[in-house]
């Protein structure tokens, strides 16, 4: 296969929260992840950027067991989500392992995916009550506290369709946080939003990062990456092609594909800003 060489995005830490080693994923003949190696340390904010189709979303989904992988190992908080079996082929994780991992990592989706038949409060308490086994009263109290933190306490009793996209996405973040995960995965969570609603969601995420949450964020919001990320990872054609501090990557990308990608999104960003102004 042609394409750029894979870069090792390990941290060398002895206790990474998430450890991904030489992970491969194919959809038919298409290789969407090619030898991805990556660590995420506790409290770290990793922003993943790259052109669409570069494998960012698949990587995130693999970390939450929404996709199985075809090779390599994934270890999350000591739980082996993906590892080769005795025959060397990847072993399919059992349901208990998958659920154990999902208790450690929360996920927020591009299209919110709130439960439309439940109120905001029920969306946030369903997991804690039915999965964590929390008493309903306690789950409710904690949910209301979370809703206050994201500024939506007054919306507890409404249904998702009565909320704006930005509000729905904030509720989706609260729903994931209510499970008290060790890490949060954000899959292009502002891409489906009207431009004027992006800010309120990023604000919640920024605060979460400040509070020390471990986060992997797939996004096209370069400003957010620059301000919040501890490390930026650039993916292209299923590989990690560059990794580093946001300052270094945005100022002086070493890889020509990174430069090209940044050039494109930054120009597009400026154009859409001009459109809004006009």
């Amino acid at each position: 296969m042609s394409g750029p060489p894979a870069v090792d995005a390990g941290t060398g830490s002895s206790t990474p929260l998430i450890a991904v080693r030489d992970v491969w994923k194919r959809f038919g003949t298409l290789e969407v992840l090619r030898s991805v190696t990556l660590d995420v340390d506790p409290g770290e904010v990793v922003v993943v950027i790259g052109p669409s189709g570069s494998g960012k979303t698949t990587l995130l989904r693999a970390l939450n067991a929404l996709e199985t992988v075809d090779g390599g190992t994934i270890t999350i908080k000591g739980i082996h989500l993906a590892e080769p079996g005795p025959d060397g082929r990847p072993r399919r994780p059992d349901d208990r392992t998958i659920r154990a991992v999902r208790l450690e990592v929360g996920m927020v989706f591009q299209r919110f995916n709130l439960f439309p038949h439940m109120t905001v409060l029920d969306n946030v308490t369903a997991g804690p009550i039915h999965v964590r086994g929390l008493a309903p009263a306690e789950a409710r109290a904690r949910a209301i506290e979370l809703l206050q933190r994201i500024g939506l306490a007054d919306k507890a009793e409404v249904h998702p369709h009565q909320l704006s996209g930005g509000q729905q996405q904030r509720v989706a973040i609260a729903r994931a946080l209510a499970m008290q995960p060790e890490a949060m995965l954000f899959d292009e969570v502002t891409s489906a939003l009207d431009p004027e609603l992006v800010g309120e969601v990023l604000k919640v995420m920024r605060r979460l990062a400040q509070d020390g949450m471990t986060m992997i964020v797939v996004t096209h919001e370069m400003q957010f990456a620059r301000e919040v990320a501890d490390r930026v990872i650039v993916m292209d054609q299923g590989r990690i092609i560059e990794v580093g501090a946001p300052r270094a990557i945005f100022r002086a990308p070493t890889h020509p594909r990174t430069a090209e990608f940044l050039q494109r999104v930054l120009v597009e960003g400026r154009e859409s800003e001009e459109e809004t102004r006009a």
Binding site: R102, G106, F109, P116, H117
Partner: peptide
């Protein structure tokens, strides 16, 4: 996507059917 959102909350399949999918399917 409803299944995925529920799976991401570590819900087991019978629970997802009971509280997420069937209530919406009934409508």
């Amino acid at each position: 996507s409803q299944w995925e959102a529920a799976h991401a909350l570590a819900m087991p399949t019978p629970l997802i059917l009971r509280i997420v999918v069937l209530p919406q399917a009934f409508r």
